[in-house]
Design a protein around this nucleic acid. Structure first.
Lengths: 110, 110
DNA sequence: AATATATATCGTAATATTGCGATATATATA
DNA sequence: TATATATATCGCAATATTACGATATATATT
């Protein structure tokens, strides 16, 4: 169906999934890397760095904003995008906690 | 198009994106949590724990196997799934490194 | 006011994902 | 050999995602 049954999962599971979506496309990974390293901030610079159409980049930025991992500040006629450090920390915590739940070497069956 | 242009991104960017896909659906998050906490290992137990059809769970397991984050061991007629600890560590490293690339509080524009 | 610049949104096409019932497969047991 | 059990795969329908050209919007500059 392509329609995820979000209502049957916990808030945490849905949030982890949503945050993971920010990283689940190489273009968004590239955008986040550029923003994280402050190599680019202005939308147009991101478009220049990426081999994608302006409309496509804008769409990915919109998705990242929806997730909350970045925010944009209007500086007419430009828009400056930055990592939302609060959400970034939230993601770091969530994934960190997640990875720590595995007891390495504790395999009981396989 | 729904067709990602993987060839224009780096190996690392594509790998991060692929690993993130493992976490980018709440059902897969739930599966990984169950496996990580060893609350379930056998496919049928996962199906019992999740409010999804057996075919759907099997499909998610297949995707997780494709990514490499889990592996399955046949124990006829059952299949025991486990976290692939090597890939798990790879993911932990990759995301950890990624999160560390942000220079917190170093905003130059916004 | 007209124009240029930067970004967002619209519309559309192609492909991917999600979900499930039905069915296939493969092994153990009667 | 027939049957039961567990899992995988097939086929389909609905929805989501990705990508881009065209266009809209919004602000500066001439």
């Amino acid at each position: 169906m392509g329609v995820t049954k979000t209502e049957i999962f916990t808030e945490e599971q849905n949030r982890v999934a949503d945050l993971a979506k920010a990283f689940a496309h190489p273009a968004r990974v590239a955008i986040l890397q550029l923003l994280a390293q402050k190599k680019a901030c202005v939308c147009g610079d991101l478009v220049d760095e990426l081999p994608l159409a302006q409309a496509t980049v804008s769409q990915h930025l919109k998705e990242l904003k929806r997730i909350g991992i970045i925010h944009g500040e209007i500086d007419p006629p430009r828009v400056c995008y930055c990592i939302n450090e609060t959400a970034w920390e939230e993601a770091r915590q969530m994934f960190g906690a997640f990875f720590d739940t595995v007891i390495v070497g504790n395999a009981t069956c396989c």
